[in-house]
Design a protein around this nucleic acid. Sequence first.
RNA 1: GCGGACGUGGCGAAAUUGGCAGACGCGUUGGACUUAGAAUCCAAUGGGCAACCUUGCAAGUUCAAAUCUUGUCGUCCGCACCA
Length: 809
Amino acid sequence: MDAKSVEKKWQARWEKSKLNEFDKKDTKKPKYYVLEMFSYPSGAKLHVGHWYNYGPTDSFARFKRMQGYNVFQPMGFDAFGLPAENYAIKTGVHPKDSTEKNIETMEGQLRAMGAMFDWSAEVKTCEENYYKWTQWMFLQLYKHGLAYRKEAPVNWCPSCSTVLANEQVKEGACERCGTQVVRKNLTQWFFKITDYAEELLTGLDDIDWPEKTKAMQRNWIGKSTGCEIEFDCESGDKIRVYTTRCDTVFGVSYVVLAPEHPLARKLATPAQAKAVEEYIDYAAKASEIDRLSTAREKTGVFTGSYCVNPVNGKRIPVYLADYVLASYGTGAVMAVPAHDERDFAFATKYGLPIVKTIEKKGGETELPFCEDGIVVGSIEFDGLFGEEARDAIAAHIAKLGKGGKKVNYRLRDWLVSRQRYWGAPIPVVHCPQCGAVPVPEEELPVRLPYDVEFKPDGKSPLAKHEKFMHTVCPNCGVEALRDPDTLDTFVCSSWYYLRYADPKNESAPFGRDSVDKMLPVDTYVGGAEHACMHLLYARFFTKALRDMGYLDFDEPFRRLVHQGVILGPDGNRMSKSHGNVVSPDEYVEKYGSDAFRLYLMFGFSYTEGGPWNDDGIKAIAKFMDRVEKTVLRAHACTGGKKEYGAEEKALDYARNFAVSRVTRDLEAFSFNTAIARIMEFLNALSKYDALPEKNVPLFRAAAKDLLLLLAPCAPHFCEELWEQTGGKGSVFEQSYPKEDPEKLVLDEKEYAVQVNSKIVCRAMLPANAANEEIEKCALALPEVQDRIGNQTVKKCVVVPGRLVNLIVG
RNA sequence: GCGGACGUGGCGAAAUUGGCAGACGCGUUGGACUUAGAAUCCAAUGGGCAACCUUGCAAGUUCAAAUCUUGUCGUCCGCACCA
């Protein structure tokens, strides 16, 4: 079969008959929403990774369709982003132009894959009719108190005068010019994802996601239960610290603030002011990477101030140290050198006291001792252990009015401001009188102007665009400036699965009817690298929109599957710099898209991936060839016998076994085993085909099932064979074969017969006999008799249909 | 450092979730058909002459462990001093 012409033929026919489109009018069939993570339109062609994500998942979608679902499988482009802008800086090609060109190329390639994407629902996030609604989302979050502004540090390259993404900082230096990157504070917009921390955590229990992804999100959210404690300073200021180990509070020998802490400068005594200032400077200069490195030596500075430990009245010094992070907890820590490794290292270096207040249960206590133990030197709490001690001490602190139990999350609010051009403009006007004022909804979109200067020179590109910037305050009408920043592209991708349901809607981001009918996503497939960011943000959006009354489900993605990564042949991640990029094109050219897809499905464990090698691809072409021959021979077969004997029974068994296993395996994204089962079935058919006399109706029916089983995995190929063998309509309008359980019942099954857990022989034994009878049959076997001799059977374990184990002695 | 995973023939991988390790393929070897090769078909193929040995290594639980537990080595991923 000539793959190329067959592919073209069927792609054209599918398009014409709208076979791939979701039927919104169909009210009988249950809907099924299959979603693959949409692509970033890069300049490079579709790579093996795209194929690996989309090809097998498309087979899953087609399988669902044949099972009788009204399947929705859309595709689109995550089109805003940094690479297009960097490319513009480098080459002068406008991001809009390069992006549109790339999208066009990729659309062509995606169509050539022959996936059943519903192109009528295509979404491109950089288009006005999309980003208008991204801006609308911002306004709704703002309206509901979920968007706010505060100062936050950015990576700043003093030489390029520009903000850098973490990704652009290489070992503390700007990747473009090598200058040391510093941290600089800017006022930026945040989404209050932390309001949903608890629900984002508990919601994980009810969704069908890989456990490891759930574990990662749980870790990322990082719930901990501890205690907040207030330390009064001699200056009158109060320092609140957060600790998970309040059972060690009697051992506090100093308090540490993050260098960015609001009290850091205030607590510096005149004698220490210079040193404190220098230290704050030093910490700000250190790049994020340096700052967070474990290898970094603990440093800090004494503020000169003292505070009081509320539980024992001890006077203790206040330090600054950059091992304490402003972004976690309260940005301040009580240091207990005896029971914390970091505090221990710091105290040792600066000669601070180390006071033991916890002892190991039944053993020598070696400091620092960081596990739970028995409290000592802590007045009435002595003798308590671990959690018990923490409860008691927290209650005591609460009674003193100095804090108490507190739940804390590691999750931080989501910073969405980007000092970039190629993104959705933040729909806010800054008025000299009213402050930050949201743009009224009816004025959306705030259009992204085309004629801008991208060259980095210390300002957001939009800030230099006079016409864009100057406007009037929607509130009071005085002259005002627009927000010059754009939204993080993760904002665009946090709701695209909703827009797919109603992509042309002009008056709303999506119609309630459409969303109610089509969502949530039933199966979402994409890379594991999005475990913490995209997948968490999308869940947050869904929950926030639900609370605003726009949706009535809690989770956007009912089931999640991660495809593995196809590495280069050398075992490294495919990249230009490694020079190990494998292009799908030459394989598709040579073997056809079905064969390439089939190979990807068969040669790897889908969720594992692995290094590329093409050893098996020829075998797939051979397999397809055999399928073609067998199906055509069966179709042409005439005459034959009418009997239904042992051979027929064996063929029927193989057929039903394949149907049952392939169905189960496709459901589970276990594509390699599904195809293995189809191969076995083909082998059984070939064997039957070799018989001189055949039961033709059975042979034909079996060959038809083979074709139907394979259809989702090799769509063009099977569609063509379906037509050639007289099939009406599309093969994808057929029902997927269902097994006949009766044909899977066997009279006898092969048992492994063991004596003292060692295998002695294999024997065909009655399939539905009672355990006692199996034992009897096994005992009667000569091999068993030989092995047992005159020993007695003490115990017998029977695993029905599989194994019998006689314990003798 | 913390968290998560993974480790099975020469290779890609399976294993009904504790029940015959190596399904299905690749490769290799032998054979058939060919003037010859390609293609195709058939057979063998974890190791060892054997008893037996084999799921990174070492223990443990069990009638039974690739699967569970502990330790250990190695690889990968995520997070990065989380108080």
